[in-house]
């Protein structure tokens, strides 16, 4: 009896988990194949490049958000950080030929400060994450708009080296997706293979047990928010690099898009489950749908509606699968009666 159980539970759960990422991938493939069949220009070099460029920034934010959500928290302030950093770095480079690295560091530093504030409020004062980050969203956005005062950064004033970051490529691979993939792999590897990385999952899975196990809960939550802030800062600089022309409300309203990408990617909103790879795939899927609608000449107004439906579908299917798995695992326990 026991020989059968051994490995059975794992396989089942592993399959379901991997199936989560695989099913997004499958959805992507189907989407791309069908669209290409209808309109072959969809898979043109430029088309693919555009999708990856567009998805990069969202995926970057999704990676940071994943770290936060895994610990059973949420960061709604990311959109406003992107806006603030995009504008701030625009101001910084305006008319100067700044070193790209310096701009990146500045952007990430601003993001880190924002993330740190969120992290301190959530971890040390134990205020509900949704409320805190909603508050900082308002504050950061207000500060950004106040500072910008309707001003606009024009591509003409942005140094070429920075714009090159947004449109250039190495070995035919554009920088933006490259950066995103590197960050994703690094964070993913950390979360999966390092003892401290696993603690993020433990904290989200059962906070009380995490406390009894003596885990450094505050430090991990602080790290999650700071990472999310830093990546939002990075995304802000990349936003400027990609679009050149920036007004204060860059990435306005993106906080919910990011959460949507993360959830579609199989990260449980109640924490403890999911991977950055899934989240990044979720971002890619949401972006691809946008492009597909354009190519298929579907009224682009459907884009949001479809994204919303997809999100609902994703969490519903997840939930139903989860219930099945729990029930299956429970039935396995009946062996004790045998």
């Amino acid at each position: 009896m026991t020989a059968i159980t051994s490995g059975g539970g794992r396989r089942l759960v592993d399959t379901v988990l991997r199936a989560r990422e695989l099913s997004i991938l499958a959805a992507l493939v189907v989407l791309v194949v069908v669209t290409t069949a209808v309109n072959s220009s969809f898979l043109s070099d430029q088309g693919v490049k555009d999708i990856f460029l567009n998805a990069s920034i969202l995926a970057l934010l999704a990676v940071g958000q994943t770290m936060v959500v895994i610990t059973r928290n949420i960061d709604l302030s990311v959109g406003s950080v992107v806006g603030l950093v995009a504008f701030a770095s625009g101001k910084f480079v305006l008319g100067h030929d700044r070193n790209v690295l310096l701009v990146l560091i500045l952007g990430m530093a601003i993001g880190a400060v924002c993330g740190l504030v969120n992290g301190v409020l959530v971890s040390f004062f134990r205020v509900p994450a949704l409320v805190v980050t909603l508050g900082t969203l308002y504050v950061i956005q207000g500060a950004d708009y106040y500072w910008a005062h309707g001003q606009q950064i024009n591509a003409a004033d942005v140094p070429g080296s920075l714009l090159e970051l947004g449109s250039g490529s190495v070995l035919g691979i554009p920088y933006l997706p490259l950066i995103t993939v590197v960050v994703m792999l690094a964070v993913g590897h950390y979360l999966r293979s390092y003892p401290s990385g696993r603690e993020f999952y433990a904290i989200g899975s059962n906070p009380d047990a995490a406390r009894l196990a003596g885990l450094a809960i505050r430090r991990r939550i602080l790290t999650a928010y700071t990472t999310s802030g830093i990546l939002a800062g990075l995304a802000g600089v990349l936003w400027l690099a990609r679009f050149g022309t920036v007004v204060a409300d860059a990435a306005h309203g993106w906080e919910l898009r990011v959460v949507a990408a993360v959830v579609v990617g199989g990260v449980a909103i109640v924490g403890g489950l999911g991977s950055v790879y899934g989240a990044a795939l979720g971002a890619l899927l949401l972006t691809t749908i946008g492009s597909v609608l354009v190519v298929l000449k579907v009224n682009s107004f459907w884009q949001d509606a479809i994204a919303g439906l997809l999100l609902l579908l994703a969490i519903s299917v997840d939930r139903l699968l989860g219930l099945r798995v729990t029930r299956a695992l429970r039935r396995r326990n009946v062996r004790h009666g045998a």
Partner: peptide, 10 residues
């Protein structure tokens, strides 16, 4: 939270 983020978009 998750549901209504979805329907918000929808």
């Amino acid at each position: 939270l998750a549901v209504t983020i979805g329907t918000l978009t929808l």
